[in-house]
Computed example of a mutant assay.
Amino acid sequence: MGSFPGHVLPGTLFLVIGVWHIWSAMVRYSTNPKSFRVRVWNPVSGFDGRLKYLELYVIAIGGFIDFCIELFYSTHLRIVVHGVLNPRHMNNFEHAGMLLMFVIFGVIVLLSEKTSFLPLPDGALCLIGATAFCAEYFLFFFHSTTHKGLEGYYHLILVLLIGLCILTIIAGTLMPTSFPLDLASGIAVTLQGLWFYQTAFTLYGPMMPEGCQLKGNDVMCRSADSEVRGELLANFQLFSMVFVVLAATAGVYSFAASDTGHSEIRNSHVPLDG
């Protein structure tokens, strides 16, 4: 069982990175569609280049902070008991291992981009990013914490969104000039971040469905009907998020295309005469 902060913190990281990826992909494509390439990370322009690698620092440092919270703070430093890993905190150890993969990803990309020790092409960096999401996928799919009922349904949707992140990144690696795939990757990461937030507010916050409540470490519903209503509410929440993200993406793309749009994009939308 998790907690409200335990979902909000990673949700914030995924949401920030996902929104930044969407914006960057649209700007890069609208500026010059012919030179567009799929990227697993996007540099920050301006500020004399001082913030170029900000995204990678956010991933590496943010992931490391969350890793330390899971491994040290949540376990109260009782990591080993009687010579073995503390069985009461296996959930925290699993989360820490997943977060460590994203830290490693951020460090590897930084080494590849800033030094000559590990020069890797964009395709290889994309696959390393997909590997980090695979670790997250396997964590929530083969969790030591048994997710049942309404809690299990929210985590099932999370697993599906993580799988979408993996598929879009791998597909983008295979088709490195595809703008839709790069955009879809950012949308998938954004939806994952939003769903972490939704899970926090629903299971551990004020949005618990009527007829269900948090008892100890379990979400309990009074009846099967209450659980079904909770699952239908989760479906509605997911559909609403998808609609809002797609609508916002379309609106932002319209702004990016009109502001920095390449002549090729603007001309492709000029209506043909009769």
Rank of each mutant, 00 (worst) to 15 (best):
L54D: 00
L54Q: 04
L54K: 01
L54C: 12
L54E: 10
E55L: 06
E55K: 00
L56D: 02
L56N: 02
L56K: 04
Y57D: 07
Y57P: 01
Y57E: 08
V58L: 15
V58T: 11
V58A: 10
I59V: 14
I59P: 01
A60S: 11
A60K: 08
A60F: 06
A60N: 00
I61H: 08
G62W: 07
G62M: 02
G63I: 09
G63A: 05
G63M: 05
F64M: 15
F64L: 15
I65H: 03
I65Y: 11
D66W: 11
F67V: 03
F67T: 04
C68I: 12
I69E: 02
E70Q: 10
E70A: 09
L71Y: 03
L71M: 13
L71F: 14
L71D: 00
L71W: 08
F72G: 02
Y73N: 07
Y73K: 05
Y73F: 15
Y73A: 13
S74N: 14
S74K: 13
S74F: 10
S74I: 08
T75F: 13
T75Y: 11
T75S: 08
T75G: 01
T75M: 05
H76Y: 06
H76G: 10
L77A: 06
L77M: 08
L77Q: 13
R78Y: 10
R78D: 12
R78I: 04
R78Q: 13
R78A: 11
I79K: 02
I79E: 03
I79P: 00
V80I: 10
V80G: 01
V81N: 01
V81M: 12
V81Q: 07
H82R: 15
H82E: 14
H82Y: 12
H82N: 15
H82M: 09
G83N: 08
G83K: 02
V84A: 14
V84C: 10
V84I: 15
L85C: 06
L85I: 01
L85M: 12
